[in-house]
Design a protein around this nucleic acid. Structure first.
Lengths: 372, 372
DNA sequence: CTGCGTTAGTGAACTGGTTTACTAAAGTTC
DNA sequence: GAACTTTAGTAAACCAGTTCACTAACGCAG
């Protein structure tokens, strides 16, 4: 006897009772006294919609707007429609490197209708794998992988930044580490430095090997000795990925403890370089008079550090934007290049000067150019 | 017993023809010779699944795993299933403030199955509104709004950080600005400073008003004069949101140009404080001997700046984690509190010391005027 | 009056799952 | 051996759209 209640009839269920939920296509169809098909065709503005008279098209568009109709994203996507999403994977968001990339990336995406899904894996391989899976599940159409290389192809277009090698399934956006390191060491060498210490990137870190190889090659070329006692590798501190500057500071302390003499210090990245400068300062060594320091990246802080850091500039913002560009284009075009390389630039500031054995370096500093 | 050859049986449909796409529930059902219903119930481990014998459950689980079955996220979500997504909205990712919050947020989400959708609106109201809409479309279950307040309720749980007022529809995570500013000014006052200059936050910025009111109140309390000529408001530079330190540097230059004497400088945030220190230095004023500087935030760079910055510590990482916590709990519990306030902490470092009456009068601009 | 083309639509299958309501078969009780 | 219970499972509706294939109604030529 009970009437099997066709409960969820759009029209019957008090149309404004659940006005918190948005109006569905079926309800809109009820209002317009048209079929779902018609409305769908018109709102999507497909070629076939041409068959409907202007008046109908106008009516549909107007009513949809008036009632605030927005198609359900999930129902839509179920029919292989684009999600307009890109995924960004990074180990963490540290002192500015990732943030600068992300800024450029997001900026490029602005007004394209695309958004990004971001997830961080905190230097954990398993998390990384899971992150990529999760992002794929959620329908991202492309991936930006920052210092993160999953062991196998994610199966969707991917751009990698800060990786030692370019996996065949990705486009790599990189900087010419060899060029940058050459400029940096050349700069120190020209100033007269021969005794250099080195702080190498963290094990497994993206540019670590590439940049270190560049150091070895360049030093050989200039005849500068790479003393193992004056070479320290950055180590990640707990809580992981939140104390990069301290990593640099500790590396600097290790170098000082070696007791060996060095007049210049080449550091893997800016944040660690600034940490190392702090270590030098705390040990009573003046920068640059006693030790010249060169960093890499040119994060925002490099220019306002004291002394302002001489560094190799990576155009991070542009690189992030380029990554977005590539992913956007990848949807349609076939992109030939597998490796987009940016050329870094040496920015000379105040953390470098000639070695002080001559002792005549004071005035050089006061007339330093200190460019921004 | 009846073997019905349902055409679209997974086994017949050339199982590896579209192996690029993942296996569907229907195909899995074909393999197992069970219905979609059964498999769905078992894999979701709902209470009703208890009726199936262990052997069947095992078989289903094993086969699903072996074939790498993963339910389609969109189909799933279409049935009001959770998306396990939170949205994060911020104006941009600058020098560390947003990144630190995001780090804490992401860290808390790790291993919860939740990911975040991030989008930035570059200080544009319209973008902000659109971002929130887009995130909601994509099914986020909650929002973290950093320095971003949409004009109306987003209709889903939201946590706001860095906002002047707490909209009734959100939970606000904030720091006690009044307490922090009091500590900072008290510190300077105790050191003997009476002539203070101020760099106020940017117009429309999140904590700007709250913090500035705290300054006014506290100065009144200590009887310190707030001289309009020694008060500068930060202004956003192009490209928007990428040169925060320069904003501080320029504000510092404006203060110096006023020609008025001040022995201490209270700055809205660390990044600008560090920029302002650079301005002081370039104008030949020593920090802290000539000018003591206090910042706010305690971003990573504060501790390795030279001199290390005295600042009011905001536990950003914890605040981000708390925001995640709240959103996670909001799904189930009703949360009573509308405002979770963290207490900041004054970190005294080397950028503050007692005023030196001699030092303050040292002639300015003895050195270069810092070419641009 | 028939046949044909055009116009303005619509019904139903489909996307890939979840969930409610139902059932065949076997076991148990009296 | 009839009635009831339990076990193990399925059919079909549903989520909210898209899309393929079809048609009623009308105009017009022959």
């Amino acid at each position: 006897m009970q009437v099997k209640p066709k409960k969820s009839n759009g029209a019957k269920r008090a149309p404004d009772a659940d006005s918190a939920d948005r109006i569905t296509l079926k309800e809109l169809a009820g209002h317009l006294r048209l079929s779902r098909t018609t409305i769908s065709l018109i709102l999507n503005d497909v070629p076939e919609a041409a068959r409907f008279p202007d008046e109908t098209r106008r009516r549909v568009a107007e009513t949809a707007k008036r009632l605030g109709y927005r198609p359900n994203f999930f129902a839509r996507t179920l029919n292989k429609k684009p999600t307009c999403l890109f995924g960004v994977v990074a180990p963490d968001f540290g002192e500015g490197y990732e943030a600068a990339l992300l800024s450029g990336f997001e900026r490029r995406l602005l007004n394209t209708g695309y958004t990004s899904l971001v997830s961080t894996h905190l230097w954990n391989r398993e998390n990384l794998q899971r992150d990529v899976e999760a992002l794929r599940d959620r329908g991202v159409e492309g991936l930006l992988l920052i210092n993160s290389t999953p062991s196998e192809s994610p199966g969707i277009p991917a751009v990698t930044i800060c990786t030692d090698r370019s996996p065949i399934w990705s486009i790599r956006v990189s900087i010419d580490n060899a060029y940058g390191i050459d400029k940096a060491i050349n700069h120190l060498f020209s100033l007269g430095h021969r005794e250099m210490a080195f702080i190498k990137g963290p094990k497994g870190g993206g540019d670590t090997e590439d940049r270190w190889n560049a150091v070895l090659t360049t030093c050989k070329k200039f005849g500068v000795r790479v003393d193992p006692d004056l070479t320290v590798q950055l180590e990640q501190l707990e809580p992981i990925g939140t104390r990069h500057a301290d990593e640099g500071r500790m590396a600097g302390e290790v170098l000082l403890r070696s007791g060996k003499r060095f007049t210049a210090l080449v550091v893997f990245n800016d944040i660690s370089a600034i940490g190392a400068m702090a270590a030098m300062r705390e040990a009573g060594r003046r920068v640059p008079e006693d030790v010249s320091v060169v960093g890499f990246d040119d994060i925002e802080f490099a220019s306002i550090a004291n002394p302002a850091l001489t560094t190799v500039r990576q155009p991070l913002y542009e690189m992030g934007a380029k990554a977005a560009e590539l992913l956007l284009r990848k949807r349609t075009d076939e992109i030939a290049a597998r490796d987009i390389q940016f050329r870094p630039e040496l920015i000379v500031r105040s953390s470098t000067c000639p070695p002080s054995s001559a002792g005549a370096n004071r005035e050089r500093r006061s007339k330093s150019k200190s460019p921004r």
